[in-house]
C-alpha cells in the first residue's frame, strides 16, 4: 500500500503531512555508519528482509500461429486430489465447440494433486501430438 492510501485509511490527509520530515532513507555518504546506531536522537536500523534467490527460468514453449485445426489438451491439475474440479474445463471445451469448432479439445485430469507430477500424461500428450495445453487450477 502506498503512503497516500495508508494515510487516507488512517484518516489523515496526505496534504497535511506533505511538509513533514522525510521518511528514512538509506545512509548517505556523510551519515554515520550502521554501527553507530543512535546519533543525536537518530537511529539506524538493519534491514530484516532477505534478497531472494530465484530459480533458473526456463524458456516458454513455442507458440502456435493459430489454433484452427489444432489439438489442445485441457488438463485439470486436480488441485486437492478429489477429482471434482474439472467442471470449468468442461465448459471451456463447450466454448471451443461453439466458437472455434475446428479446434479439437481433449480433457484430462492429472493424477495426484496439485504438487504431484504425472509423467505418463505428459508423455501421452507428446505422443499423440497435442499442439498445446491449457493447464487449469480450480478452487
Amino acid at each position: 500500500m502506498d503512503r497516500r492510501k495508508m494515510l487516507a485509511l488512517l484518516g489523515v490527509s496526505p496534504v497535511l503531512v506533505a511538509d513533514a520530515p522525510s521518511y528514512a532513507r538509506t545512509a548517505s555518504r556523510n551519515a554515520p555508519k550502521a554501527g553507530a546506531a543512535v546519533t543525536s536522537g537518530l537511529v539506524t536500523a538493519l534491514n530484516p528482509a532477505v534478497t531472494p534467490q530465484l530459480a533458473q527460468r526456463v524458456p516458454l514453449a513455442p507458440r502456435l500461429s493459430t489454433l484452427e485445426g489444432k489439438t489442445i489438451y485441457l488438463v485439470d491439475t486436480d488441485w486437492g486430489g478429489m477429482g471434482q474440479n474439472d467442471g470449468i474445463l468442461q465448459e471451456m471445451q463447450a466454448w471451443f465447440a461453439q466458437h472455434m469448432p475446428s479446434v479439437k479439445t481433449i480433457l484430462k485430469v492429472k493424477k495426484g494433486n496439485f504438487v504431484t507430477d504425472d509423467p505418463a500424461l505428459w508423455k501421452e500428450i507428446a505422443d499423440k501430438k497435442g499442439d498445446g495445453v491449457i493447464l487449469g487450477v480450480a478452487g
Binding site: 538509506t26 550502521a34 536500523a45 534491514n47 530465484l54 527460468r57
Partner: peptide, 17 residues
Amino acid sequence: TRTIPQSAGPDHFGPDT
C-alpha cells in the same frame, strides 16, 4: 534462460527518527 535478479534493498535504513 537465466536467473532474474531481485533485491531486498539496502542493508540498513537511516539514520532517522
